[in-house]
Design a protein around this nucleic acid. Structure first.
Lengths: 219, 219
DNA sequence: CAAAACTGCGAACGTGGTTCGCAGTTTACA
DNA sequence: TGTAAACTGCGAACCACGTTCGCAGTTTTG
Protein backbone atom coordinates (compact mmCIF):
# COMPACT_ATOMS: atom_id res chain seq x y z
CA UNK A 1 0.00 0.00 0.00
CA UNK A 2 1.29 3.42 -0.79
CA UNK A 3 2.23 5.65 2.04
CA UNK A 4 0.87 8.82 0.52
CA UNK A 5 -2.63 7.50 0.98
CA UNK A 6 -2.13 7.07 4.71
CA UNK A 7 -0.15 10.18 5.50
CA UNK A 8 -2.09 13.40 5.49
CA UNK A 9 0.52 15.34 3.53
CA UNK A 10 3.25 14.51 1.05
CA UNK A 11 6.79 14.47 2.28
CA UNK A 12 7.49 17.94 0.96
CA UNK A 13 5.04 19.76 3.19
CA UNK A 14 5.10 17.38 6.13
CA UNK A 15 6.65 18.90 9.24
CA UNK A 16 10.04 17.49 10.07
CA UNK A 17 9.57 17.27 13.83
CA UNK A 18 7.58 18.61 16.75
CA UNK A 19 8.76 20.83 19.52
CA UNK A 20 8.97 18.41 22.39
CA UNK A 21 11.28 15.52 22.90
CA UNK A 22 15.04 15.21 22.68
CA UNK A 23 16.89 16.71 19.77
CA UNK A 24 17.05 14.15 16.97
CA UNK A 25 20.37 12.57 16.34
CA UNK A 26 19.87 12.60 12.60
CA UNK A 27 18.13 14.61 9.90
CA UNK A 28 16.37 14.10 6.62
CA UNK A 29 19.28 15.67 4.79
CA UNK A 30 21.77 13.34 6.47
CA UNK A 31 19.69 10.29 5.72
CA UNK A 32 19.22 11.34 2.11
CA UNK A 33 22.92 12.07 1.74
CA UNK A 34 23.84 8.65 3.11
CA UNK A 35 21.32 6.99 0.81
CA UNK A 36 22.67 8.85 -2.21
CA UNK A 37 26.20 7.85 -1.30
CA UNK A 38 25.10 4.25 -1.13
CA UNK A 39 23.22 4.49 -4.42
CA UNK A 40 26.12 6.14 -6.21
CA UNK A 41 28.44 3.42 -5.00
CA UNK A 42 26.38 0.27 -5.40
CA UNK A 43 23.15 1.11 -7.15
CA UNK A 44 19.63 1.62 -5.96
CA UNK A 45 19.27 -1.97 -4.81
CA UNK A 46 21.89 -1.28 -2.17
CA UNK A 47 19.68 1.40 -0.66
CA UNK A 48 17.81 -0.64 1.91
CA UNK A 49 16.53 0.76 5.13
CA UNK A 50 18.95 -1.37 7.07
CA UNK A 51 21.90 -0.39 4.91
CA UNK A 52 21.16 3.30 5.20
CA UNK A 53 20.65 2.89 8.93
CA UNK A 54 23.94 1.09 9.49
CA UNK A 55 25.72 3.66 7.32
CA UNK A 56 24.46 6.24 9.79
CA UNK A 57 25.19 4.11 12.82
CA UNK A 58 21.58 3.63 13.77
CA UNK A 59 18.80 1.11 13.35
CA UNK A 60 16.34 0.60 10.54
CA UNK A 61 13.32 1.33 12.64
CA UNK A 62 14.79 4.65 13.71
CA UNK A 63 14.66 5.96 10.17
CA UNK A 64 10.88 5.94 10.36
CA UNK A 65 11.12 8.82 12.80
CA UNK A 66 12.21 10.94 9.83
CA UNK A 67 10.45 9.35 6.87
CA UNK A 68 7.33 7.33 6.63
CA UNK A 69 8.34 4.93 3.88
CA UNK A 70 11.11 3.98 1.55
CA UNK A 71 9.25 5.64 -1.29
CA UNK A 72 9.55 8.87 0.60
CA UNK A 73 13.27 8.35 0.77
CA UNK A 74 13.46 7.76 -2.97
CA UNK A 75 11.46 10.91 -3.60
CA UNK A 76 13.78 12.90 -1.38
CA UNK A 77 16.81 11.40 -3.09
CA UNK A 78 15.47 12.27 -6.50
CA UNK A 79 14.77 15.84 -5.58
CA UNK A 80 18.10 16.19 -3.84
CA UNK A 81 19.74 15.01 -7.04
CA UNK A 82 17.68 17.51 -9.02
CA UNK A 83 19.21 20.21 -6.87
CA UNK A 84 22.44 19.44 -8.67
CA UNK A 85 21.00 20.97 -11.82
CA UNK A 86 21.41 24.41 -10.33
CA UNK A 87 22.39 27.01 -11.13
CA UNK A 88 20.34 27.18 -14.29
CA UNK A 89 21.99 28.64 -17.36
CA UNK A 90 21.14 32.10 -18.54
CA UNK A 91 18.25 32.34 -20.95
CA UNK A 92 19.49 35.31 -22.92
CA UNK A 93 20.50 33.47 -26.08
CA UNK A 94 18.42 31.35 -28.39
CA UNK A 95 15.82 29.29 -26.55
CA UNK A 96 16.78 26.18 -28.46
CA UNK A 97 20.42 26.50 -27.50
CA UNK A 98 19.43 26.96 -23.89
CA UNK A 99 17.15 23.95 -23.94
CA UNK A 100 19.86 21.78 -25.43
CA UNK A 101 22.19 22.98 -22.73
CA UNK A 102 19.60 22.09 -20.13
CA UNK A 103 19.36 18.66 -21.66
CA UNK A 104 23.12 18.27 -21.48
CA UNK A 105 23.08 19.17 -17.84
CA UNK A 106 20.36 16.62 -17.27
CA UNK A 107 22.38 13.98 -19.05
CA UNK A 108 25.37 14.80 -16.88
CA UNK A 109 23.19 14.38 -13.83
CA UNK A 110 22.15 10.92 -14.95
CA UNK A 111 25.78 10.10 -15.55
CA UNK A 112 26.78 10.99 -12.02
CA UNK A 113 23.71 9.35 -10.47
CA UNK A 114 22.87 6.31 -12.59
CA UNK A 115 20.40 5.07 -10.01
CA UNK A 116 18.07 7.85 -11.11
CA UNK A 117 17.21 5.64 -14.05
CA UNK A 118 15.96 2.94 -11.71
CA UNK A 119 13.65 5.00 -9.54
CA UNK A 120 10.20 4.74 -11.02
CA UNK A 121 8.81 8.23 -10.99
CA UNK A 122 5.55 8.30 -9.13
CA UNK A 123 3.34 11.24 -9.84
CA UNK A 124 3.37 12.51 -6.25
CA UNK A 125 7.11 12.41 -6.03
CA UNK A 126 7.81 15.79 -7.57
CA UNK A 127 9.77 17.90 -5.17
CA UNK A 128 10.57 21.58 -5.01
CA UNK A 129 13.86 21.39 -6.91
CA UNK A 130 12.28 19.42 -9.70
CA UNK A 131 9.45 21.91 -9.85
CA UNK A 132 11.93 24.76 -9.96
CA UNK A 133 13.73 23.11 -12.85
CA UNK A 134 10.45 22.68 -14.65
CA UNK A 135 9.59 26.28 -13.98
CA UNK A 136 12.92 27.33 -15.38
CA UNK A 137 12.23 25.38 -18.56
CA UNK A 138 9.00 27.29 -18.96
CA UNK A 139 10.94 30.49 -18.45
CA UNK A 140 13.27 29.57 -21.28
CA UNK A 141 10.31 28.72 -23.46
CA UNK A 142 8.48 31.91 -22.60
CA UNK A 143 9.22 33.80 -25.83
CA UNK A 144 7.49 31.06 -27.76
CA UNK A 145 3.89 31.71 -28.59
CA UNK A 146 2.71 28.14 -28.71
CA UNK A 147 0.35 26.50 -26.29
CA UNK A 148 1.45 25.68 -22.79
CA UNK A 149 0.43 22.06 -23.16
CA UNK A 150 2.78 21.82 -26.11
CA UNK A 151 5.53 23.15 -23.90
CA UNK A 152 4.71 20.61 -21.22
CA UNK A 153 4.84 17.82 -23.76
CA UNK A 154 8.09 19.10 -25.19
CA UNK A 155 9.77 19.30 -21.79
CA UNK A 156 8.55 15.82 -20.88
CA UNK A 157 9.77 14.48 -24.20
CA UNK A 158 13.12 16.12 -23.76
CA UNK A 159 13.50 14.51 -20.35
CA UNK A 160 12.51 11.22 -21.87
CA UNK A 161 15.08 11.48 -24.62
CA UNK A 162 17.71 12.33 -22.06
CA UNK A 163 16.86 9.22 -20.10
CA UNK A 164 17.07 7.20 -23.28
CA UNK A 165 20.57 8.44 -23.96
CA UNK A 166 21.52 7.96 -20.35
CA UNK A 167 20.26 4.39 -20.46
CA UNK A 168 22.12 3.79 -23.68
CA UNK A 169 25.32 5.11 -22.16
CA UNK A 170 24.84 2.98 -19.07
CA UNK A 171 25.05 -0.03 -21.35
CA UNK A 172 21.61 -1.28 -20.55
CA UNK A 173 20.31 -1.99 -23.99
CA UNK A 174 23.54 -3.15 -25.53
CA UNK A 175 22.70 -6.25 -27.44
CA UNK A 176 24.64 -9.21 -26.15
CA UNK A 177 24.69 -11.36 -29.22
CA UNK A 178 27.20 -13.88 -27.97
CA UNK A 179 26.06 -17.39 -28.61
CA UNK A 180 23.12 -16.40 -30.76
CA UNK A 181 22.27 -18.56 -33.70
CA UNK A 182 22.07 -16.03 -36.48
CA UNK A 183 20.59 -18.34 -39.09
CA UNK A 184 17.10 -17.20 -38.19
CA UNK A 185 18.01 -13.54 -38.32
CA UNK A 186 19.59 -12.88 -41.69
CA UNK A 187 19.51 -9.10 -41.60
CA UNK A 188 20.92 -9.01 -38.11
CA UNK A 189 23.67 -11.38 -39.17
CA UNK A 190 24.50 -9.22 -42.17
CA UNK A 191 24.61 -6.10 -40.01
CA UNK A 192 26.94 -7.74 -37.54
CA UNK A 193 29.13 -9.32 -40.19
CA UNK A 194 29.67 -6.07 -42.03
CA UNK A 195 32.40 -4.05 -40.38
CA UNK A 196 30.52 -1.19 -38.84
CA UNK A 197 32.12 1.99 -40.00
CA UNK A 198 33.75 4.10 -37.33
CA UNK A 199 30.79 6.43 -37.75
CA UNK A 200 32.12 9.72 -36.49
CA UNK A 201 28.52 10.78 -35.98
CA UNK A 202 29.27 13.40 -33.42
CA UNK A 203 26.60 14.79 -31.22
CA UNK A 204 23.81 12.41 -31.95
CA UNK A 205 22.37 13.69 -28.72
CA UNK A 206 22.40 17.29 -29.84
CA UNK A 207 21.02 16.46 -33.25
CA UNK A 208 18.20 14.37 -31.85
CA UNK A 209 17.25 16.80 -29.15
CA UNK A 210 17.39 19.80 -31.43
CA UNK A 211 15.29 18.14 -34.08
CA UNK A 212 12.78 16.95 -31.54
CA UNK A 213 12.30 20.30 -29.84
CA UNK A 214 12.22 22.20 -33.09
CA UNK A 215 9.61 19.83 -34.42
CA UNK A 216 7.48 19.95 -31.31
CA UNK A 217 7.66 23.68 -30.69
CA UNK A 218 7.74 24.99 -34.23
CA UNK A 219 6.11 28.40 -34.18
CA UNK B 1 23.10 -11.98 -7.41
CA UNK B 2 22.06 -12.47 -10.98
CA UNK B 3 21.28 -15.91 -12.09
CA UNK B 4 22.91 -15.66 -15.48
CA UNK B 5 26.30 -15.71 -13.83
CA UNK B 6 25.58 -19.01 -12.16
CA UNK B 7 23.78 -20.84 -14.92
CA UNK B 8 25.93 -21.99 -17.77
CA UNK B 9 23.52 -20.84 -20.46
CA UNK B 10 20.84 -18.18 -20.79
CA UNK B 11 17.28 -19.26 -20.55
CA UNK B 12 16.81 -19.26 -24.31
CA UNK B 13 19.29 -22.01 -25.06
CA UNK B 14 18.99 -23.92 -21.79
CA UNK B 15 17.42 -27.33 -22.24
CA UNK B 16 13.92 -27.55 -20.91
CA UNK B 17 14.23 -30.97 -19.34
CA UNK B 18 16.19 -34.15 -19.45
CA UNK B 19 15.10 -37.49 -20.67
CA UNK B 20 14.61 -39.30 -17.40
CA UNK B 21 12.12 -38.72 -14.70
CA UNK B 22 8.35 -38.40 -14.73
CA UNK B 23 6.69 -36.19 -17.26
CA UNK B 24 6.45 -32.70 -15.86
CA UNK B 25 3.07 -31.48 -14.83
CA UNK B 26 3.70 -28.01 -16.12
CA UNK B 27 5.65 -26.22 -18.82
CA UNK B 28 7.49 -23.01 -19.35
CA UNK B 29 4.76 -21.77 -21.66
CA UNK B 30 2.09 -22.47 -19.08
CA UNK B 31 4.00 -20.74 -16.34
CA UNK B 32 4.69 -17.75 -18.55
CA UNK B 33 1.05 -17.59 -19.62
CA UNK B 34 -0.12 -17.64 -16.02
CA UNK B 35 2.37 -14.97 -15.10
CA UNK B 36 1.27 -12.76 -17.99
CA UNK B 37 -2.36 -13.19 -16.98
CA UNK B 38 -1.48 -12.09 -13.48
CA UNK B 39 0.56 -9.14 -14.73
CA UNK B 40 -2.17 -7.99 -17.10
CA UNK B 41 -4.71 -8.10 -14.30
CA UNK B 42 -2.81 -6.67 -11.35
CA UNK B 43 0.55 -5.39 -12.53
CA UNK B 44 4.04 -6.74 -12.35
CA UNK B 45 4.13 -6.56 -8.56
CA UNK B 46 1.44 -9.25 -8.47
CA UNK B 47 3.74 -11.65 -10.28
CA UNK B 48 5.38 -13.35 -7.35
CA UNK B 49 6.61 -16.88 -7.45
CA UNK B 50 4.01 -17.91 -4.94
CA UNK B 51 1.20 -16.17 -6.80
CA UNK B 52 2.15 -17.76 -10.10
CA UNK B 53 2.47 -21.12 -8.39
CA UNK B 54 -0.94 -20.94 -6.73
CA UNK B 55 -2.46 -19.80 -10.01
CA UNK B 56 -1.16 -23.03 -11.48
CA UNK B 57 -2.13 -25.11 -8.47
CA UNK B 58 1.40 -25.90 -7.45
CA UNK B 59 4.04 -24.66 -5.06
CA UNK B 60 6.58 -21.89 -5.38
CA UNK B 61 9.52 -24.17 -5.12
CA UNK B 62 8.24 -26.32 -7.94
CA UNK B 63 8.58 -23.47 -10.41
CA UNK B 64 12.34 -23.71 -10.06
CA UNK B 65 12.19 -26.99 -11.91
CA UNK B 66 11.34 -24.95 -15.01
CA UNK B 67 13.10 -21.64 -14.45
CA UNK B 68 16.13 -20.77 -12.41
CA UNK B 69 15.07 -17.34 -11.22
CA UNK B 70 12.34 -14.75 -11.33
CA UNK B 71 14.42 -12.74 -13.76
CA UNK B 72 14.23 -15.65 -16.12
CA UNK B 73 10.48 -15.55 -15.82
CA UNK B 74 10.43 -11.84 -16.61
CA UNK B 75 12.62 -12.42 -19.63
CA UNK B 76 10.34 -15.14 -20.86
CA UNK B 77 7.30 -12.96 -20.27
CA UNK B 78 8.84 -10.11 -22.20
CA UNK B 79 9.70 -12.26 -25.16
CA UNK B 80 6.30 -13.94 -25.09
CA UNK B 81 4.73 -10.50 -25.24
CA UNK B 82 7.01 -9.59 -28.13
CA UNK B 83 5.53 -12.53 -29.98
CA UNK B 84 2.34 -10.49 -30.12
CA UNK B 85 4.00 -8.14 -32.58
CA UNK B 86 3.70 -10.76 -35.25
CA UNK B 87 2.88 -10.91 -38.06
CA UNK B 88 5.10 -8.09 -39.18
CA UNK B 89 3.69 -5.69 -41.76
CA UNK B 90 4.77 -5.88 -45.35
CA UNK B 91 7.77 -3.80 -46.24
CA UNK B 92 6.80 -2.97 -49.78
CA UNK B 93 5.85 0.65 -49.23
CA UNK B 94 7.94 3.50 -47.97
CA UNK B 95 10.34 2.46 -45.25
CA UNK B 96 9.33 5.40 -43.08
CA UNK B 97 5.66 4.49 -43.27
CA UNK B 98 6.47 0.93 -42.35
CA UNK B 99 8.59 1.97 -39.41
CA UNK B 100 5.87 4.24 -38.09
CA UNK B 101 3.45 1.36 -38.41
CA UNK B 102 5.87 -0.84 -36.47
CA UNK B 103 6.02 1.82 -33.81
CA UNK B 104 2.25 1.93 -33.63
CA UNK B 105 2.14 -1.81 -33.17
CA UNK B 106 4.68 -1.52 -30.41
CA UNK B 107 2.63 1.16 -28.70
CA UNK B 108 -0.43 -1.07 -28.90
CA UNK B 109 1.56 -3.84 -27.28
CA UNK B 110 2.50 -1.59 -24.37
CA UNK B 111 -1.16 -0.64 -24.07
CA UNK B 112 -2.28 -4.22 -23.72
CA UNK B 113 0.61 -5.18 -21.43
CA UNK B 114 1.38 -2.13 -19.29
CA UNK B 115 3.65 -4.17 -17.06
CA UNK B 116 6.19 -4.18 -19.89
CA UNK B 117 7.07 -0.66 -18.81
CA UNK B 118 8.04 -1.92 -15.38
CA UNK B 119 10.35 -4.74 -16.37
CA UNK B 120 13.86 -3.34 -16.43
CA UNK B 121 15.43 -4.68 -19.56
CA UNK B 122 18.61 -6.45 -18.75
CA UNK B 123 21.04 -6.92 -21.57
CA UNK B 124 20.90 -10.69 -21.51
CA UNK B 125 17.14 -10.80 -21.62
CA UNK B 126 16.72 -10.57 -25.38
CA UNK B 127 14.75 -13.50 -26.61
CA UNK B 128 14.15 -14.97 -30.04
CA UNK B 129 10.94 -13.08 -30.74
CA UNK B 130 12.54 -9.78 -29.82
CA UNK B 131 15.49 -10.64 -31.99
CA UNK B 132 13.16 -11.49 -34.84
CA UNK B 133 11.42 -8.15 -34.46
CA UNK B 134 14.77 -6.42 -34.51
CA UNK B 135 15.76 -8.37 -37.56
CA UNK B 136 12.55 -7.34 -39.24
CA UNK B 137 13.30 -3.69 -38.54
CA UNK B 138 16.65 -4.11 -40.24
CA UNK B 139 14.82 -5.68 -43.15
CA UNK B 140 12.61 -2.63 -43.47
CA UNK B 141 15.64 -0.38 -43.27
CA UNK B 142 17.59 -2.40 -45.80
CA UNK B 143 17.08 -0.03 -48.77
CA UNK B 144 18.80 2.70 -46.81
CA UNK B 145 22.47 3.14 -47.47
CA UNK B 146 23.48 4.48 -44.12
CA UNK B 147 25.62 2.74 -41.57
CA UNK B 148 24.29 -0.22 -39.61
CA UNK B 149 25.16 1.39 -36.31
CA UNK B 150 22.95 4.31 -37.28
CA UNK B 151 20.15 1.85 -37.92
CA UNK B 152 20.71 0.24 -34.55
CA UNK B 153 20.58 3.61 -32.88
CA UNK B 154 17.46 4.60 -34.76
CA UNK B 155 15.63 1.42 -33.83
CA UNK B 156 16.62 1.76 -30.21
CA UNK B 157 15.53 5.37 -30.22
CA UNK B 158 12.22 4.49 -31.80
CA UNK B 159 11.59 1.89 -29.12
CA UNK B 160 12.50 4.45 -26.51
CA UNK B 161 10.10 7.02 -27.90
CA UNK B 162 7.38 4.41 -27.95
CA UNK B 163 7.96 3.66 -24.29
CA UNK B 164 7.84 7.37 -23.54
CA UNK B 165 4.44 7.68 -25.18
CA UNK B 166 3.25 4.53 -23.50
CA UNK B 167 4.34 5.87 -20.13
CA UNK B 168 2.64 9.13 -20.83
CA UNK B 169 -0.58 7.34 -21.72
CA UNK B 170 -0.35 5.25 -18.60
CA UNK B 171 -0.56 8.47 -16.64
CA UNK B 172 2.71 8.02 -14.86
CA UNK B 173 4.25 11.41 -15.35
CA UNK B 174 1.14 13.51 -14.96
CA UNK B 175 2.05 16.36 -12.72
CA UNK B 176 -0.05 16.38 -9.59
CA UNK B 177 0.05 20.01 -8.68
CA UNK B 178 -2.59 19.91 -6.01
CA UNK B 179 -1.51 21.70 -2.88
CA UNK B 180 1.59 23.20 -4.44
CA UNK B 181 2.55 26.68 -3.42
CA UNK B 182 3.01 28.37 -6.76
CA UNK B 183 4.58 31.54 -5.49
CA UNK B 184 8.03 30.12 -6.01
CA UNK B 185 7.24 28.95 -9.54
CA UNK B 186 5.91 31.95 -11.45
CA UNK B 187 6.07 30.49 -14.95
CA UNK B 188 4.45 27.28 -13.83
CA UNK B 189 1.71 29.25 -12.15
CA UNK B 190 1.14 31.27 -15.29
CA UNK B 191 0.98 28.17 -17.44
CA UNK B 192 -1.54 26.56 -15.14
CA UNK B 193 -3.61 29.70 -14.75
CA UNK B 194 -3.93 30.28 -18.46
CA UNK B 195 -6.70 28.13 -19.92
CA UNK B 196 -4.82 25.58 -21.93
CA UNK B 197 -6.21 25.55 -25.39
CA UNK B 198 -7.93 22.37 -26.52
CA UNK B 199 -4.87 21.75 -28.67
CA UNK B 200 -6.19 19.49 -31.41
CA UNK B 201 -2.64 18.40 -32.03
CA UNK B 202 -3.47 15.05 -33.46
CA UNK B 203 -0.88 12.41 -33.98
CA UNK B 204 1.86 13.84 -31.86
CA UNK B 205 3.17 10.32 -31.85
CA UNK B 206 3.35 10.07 -35.61
CA UNK B 207 4.87 13.50 -35.95
CA UNK B 208 7.52 12.82 -33.34
CA UNK B 209 8.44 9.41 -34.59
CA UNK B 210 8.53 10.46 -38.22
CA UNK B 211 10.70 13.45 -37.47
CA UNK B 212 13.04 11.42 -35.33
CA UNK B 213 13.56 8.62 -37.81
CA UNK B 214 13.89 10.98 -40.73
CA UNK B 215 16.47 12.99 -38.84
CA UNK B 216 18.43 9.98 -37.73
CA UNK B 217 18.40 8.05 -40.99
CA UNK B 218 18.58 10.88 -43.50
CA UNK B 219 20.39 9.54 -46.51
C1' DC C 1 5.84 18.47 38.85
C1' DA C 2 3.06 15.67 35.97
C1' DA C 3 1.40 14.79 31.47
C1' DA C 4 2.23 14.94 26.69
C1' DA C 5 5.15 14.39 22.92
C1' DC C 6 9.16 12.95 21.15
C1' DT C 7 13.63 9.97 20.52
C1' DG C 8 16.36 5.68 19.88
C1' DC C 9 16.25 0.92 19.93
C1' DG C 10 15.44 -3.86 19.25
C1' DA C 11 12.29 -7.39 18.52
C1' DA C 12 8.87 -8.91 15.77
C1' DC C 13 5.54 -9.56 11.64
C1' DG C 14 4.49 -10.45 6.83
C1' DT C 15 6.12 -11.07 2.29
C1' DG C 16 9.29 -12.02 -1.10
C1' DG C 17 13.00 -14.96 -3.75
C1' DT C 18 15.47 -18.96 -3.30
C1' DT C 19 17.48 -23.43 -1.43
C1' DC C 20 17.29 -27.94 0.28
C1' DG C 21 16.05 -32.56 1.37
C1' DC C 22 12.77 -36.09 0.97
C1' DA C 23 9.83 -39.42 -1.37
C1' DG C 24 8.28 -41.13 -5.52
C1' DT C 25 8.81 -41.93 -10.73
C1' DT C 26 10.94 -42.75 -15.12
C1' DT C 27 14.79 -43.69 -18.04
C1' DA C 28 19.60 -45.40 -19.18
C1' DC C 29 22.76 -48.94 -19.10
C1' DA C 30 25.26 -53.06 -17.68
C1' DT D 1 16.17 -57.53 -15.58
C1' DG D 2 17.70 -54.77 -12.11
C1' DT D 3 20.13 -51.05 -10.31
C1' DA D 4 21.73 -46.45 -10.45
C1' DA D 5 21.13 -42.01 -12.25
C1' DA D 6 18.25 -38.31 -13.19
C1' DC D 7 14.14 -36.18 -12.77
C1' DT D 8 9.53 -34.66 -10.53
C1' DG D 9 6.49 -32.44 -6.90
C1' DC D 10 6.34 -30.78 -2.47
C1' DG D 11 6.86 -28.49 1.83
C1' DA D 12 9.77 -26.70 5.07
C1' DA D 13 13.04 -23.87 5.78
C1' DC D 14 16.62 -19.56 5.13
C1' DC D 15 17.61 -14.88 4.36
C1' DA D 16 16.67 -10.15 3.21
C1' DC D 17 13.47 -6.71 2.96
C1' DG D 18 9.89 -2.95 4.43
C1' DT D 19 7.39 -1.90 8.21
C1' DT D 20 5.17 -1.90 12.92
C1' DC D 21 5.17 -1.96 17.78
C1' DG D 22 6.27 -1.48 22.53
C1' DC D 23 9.55 -0.05 25.81
C1' DA D 24 12.63 3.10 28.21
C1' DG D 25 14.50 7.44 28.40
C1' DT D 26 14.33 12.66 27.35
C1' DT D 27 12.51 17.19 26.54
C1' DT D 28 8.89 20.46 26.46
C1' DT D 29 4.39 22.18 27.86
C1' DG D 30 1.04 23.93 31.25
Amino acid sequence: MNNASRDPQPIWTRPVRGSRGPTPGHSREGIVAAAITLADAAGLAAVSMRAVATALGTSAGSLYRYLSSRDDLLDLMTDAAAAGLRPYPEADGDWLDTMVLLGRRQLALYRSHPWLLDVSHRSSGIGPHTLAWFDNCLRVLQPLGCDSTAKFEAIAMMTGVVTLFARSEAGGDALTLAGVDFTAYPHLAAAVARPSAPAPDRDLFERTLRGLLAGLLAT
